[in-house]
């Protein structure tokens, strides 16, 4: 690919936007179909074959709705919050390498960048909830903060554990180290660090919590808080929040794929490439949907207890044990 730099940049910006949009639309379809199958009903069937055109109808409906800014809200912050939710998710995608050749930027601190920008996401949802001046939205905003602070710590700890093993924060180098067959993937490198599966499970749980997915969707909790922080949003304002949620799920699953499942490396050692990356990533995304429709929402207290009393000590222990093992072995 010898495109001139400006065109490459433009292509990546357009490509990211298109990817985020199309991805959100069709993940909603997968979510609805999946939910329906888990509950033994057909799901969307009317629009297009197997309901495949349903996302387009949904998007048209959302866009044709009036954008209401209710009286009494903090109007600047209320309008700004959906944009602020969307932006970091797109920024994160800039650092994710989809394959050897398909990456917007190959930077050394890519891993830190993903975490830095996903931390803005919390603030944006919280500002949206606060600016709504609605009791449900404020309760939800308070829950989001305590949840995200609690789960960011174990996530960072397991990522540090991984970085200690890889010795780099460059996502492409991390994937390159996992070249070869399936037992070279970080998840299965038990000869170097037998604690890797524990690390992966903690990472996965924290990712569910950071993206506010069930069983940790305390922020939205539609049966108790109407729609949580998004209660006052109408039309596309609400739609953007949803797009951002799906974009964040994709970023989280892509990161899990890159860090633990070998990125675009194939499990048999040959024919590595972008199909493997997409396959692994969407398998993880499907598992996220699967978890959502299988487990009930946890209580808020048990959610915080899980993080502070179980996940943080366990991840600290893995960190220390990994350090010891790296010194001794």
């Amino acid at each position: 690919m010898n495109l001139p730099e400006p065109f490459r940049l433009l292509l990546f910006v357009l490509g990211t936007m298109a990817f985020v949009g199309a991805n959100a639309a069709y993940l909603v379809w997968v979510e609805r179909k999946g939910a329906a199958r888990f509950q033994r009903r057909p799901g969307p069937t009317e629009v297009g074959p197997a309901g495949l055109l349903q996302p387009i109808a949904d998007a048209l409906k959302l866009m044709s709705k009036q954008l209401i800014v209710p009286p009494g809200v903090d109007s600047i912050l209320f309008r700004l919050a959906p944009i602020l939710v969307m932006m970091p998710a797109m920024m994160c995608l800039a650092t994710i390498p989809f394959s050897e050749a398909l990456a917007a930027r190959n930077i050394n601190v890519a891993l830190v960048m993903v975490f830095a920008f996903s931390s803005i996401n919390v603030m944006a949802i919280m500002l949206g909830g606060w600016a709504s001046r609605n009791k449900y939205a404020i309760i939800s905003a308070a829950r989001i903060v305590s949840q995200n602070i609690a789960y960011e710590i174990p996530m960072m700890l397991v990522v540090i554990t991984l970085v200690m093993m890889t010795g780099t924060m460059n996502l492409r180098e991390i994937v390159d180290q996992q070249a070869g067959a399936i037992w070279h993937w970080n998840l299965f490198r038990l000869d170097e660090n037998p604690l890797m599966p524990v690390t992966f499970v903690i990472f996965y749980i924290c990712m569910l919590a950071e993206t506010n997915r069930a069983p940790f969707d305390m922020a939205e909790a539609e049966s108790e808080l109407v729609a949580g922080a998004f209660t006052e949003y109408a039309g596309m304002g609400f739609g953007v929040y949803f797009m951002a949620e799906y974009a964040n799920i994709v970023v989280g699953c892509a990161l899990a794929t890159l860090l633990f499942l070998g990125g675009w490396q194939s499990p048999i050692g040959v024919w590595s490439g972008i199909p493997w990356f997409l396959l692994k990533m969407y398998a993880l995304v499907f598992s996220v949907i699967w978890v959502r429709w299988t487990f009930p929402r946890t209580q808020f207290y048990s959610l915080l207890n899980l993080s502070w009393k179980i996940l943080i000590p366990v991840s600290l222990a893995t960190l220390v044990l990994t350090a010891i093992m790296m010194k001794i072995l």
Partner: peptide, 13 residues
């Protein structure tokens, strides 16, 4: 942004 400002807003809220 991710930690200090979020904590301040939490306090305000």
């Amino acid at each position: 942004v991710g930690a200090v400002c979020v904590t301040i807003i939490f306090g305000i809220m």
